[in-house]
Amino acid sequence: MSTGRRDFLKTSTAAVTAAGLGGCERGDRSVSEPRTPRRLHRELLRAIGDAVLPGAIGADGREKAIVAFEVWLQEFTPNAELVHPYGGWEVAYGPEDPSPRWAEQLDDLERLARQRSMASFGELSRDDRRTLIADAIEDAGPGFPTPAEAQHVAVALMAHYFRSTEATNQVYGVAINKLQCRVITTAGEKPPALGG
């Protein structure tokens, strides 16, 4: 698999989000107003987030990641024309609205939890929640898809976080701040430590 411009286009499409965008951002948003409200069950989504997102980022970090995912879903445009990959002449379109499927999957997890443990999904231990989720996504591939391509809401939430600027900074322990606009004169410097 080659990289460079093609893969940059692919990988950057899933890198998140408004939080990672710098001061140069401006312009109207009229073209991307959400067509219909899309909301997933708030508590169930957080119960998933608590199970699949890193403990190291703390409850605040997980809440921030979940809110960013909710905003992302709210602003998603179904069947949008996708960026043309260099090297091909066909025009591609994105998936339809995943939120109905994801909402059903949340309901399924809740139903399974009650069937197996006589408890709400959110009341299960983290390990038990992970077991239920793992059963639901056993066909998942080795890497994270783009969130919109994720077949399961748990995978979408993880993909949204682990492709983000924040996750990259966390794992490297420095403020790389990918996709953030900033002066070019500092490009040659080693990124500063987080919080430094």
Binding site: T13, A14, T17, A18, V83, H84, A148
Partner: peptide, 9 residues
């Protein structure tokens, strides 16, 4: 912003 978040053209 939408290109980054959604891969839109």
């Amino acid at each position: 912003r939408r290109f980054i978040a959604y891969g839109e053209n």
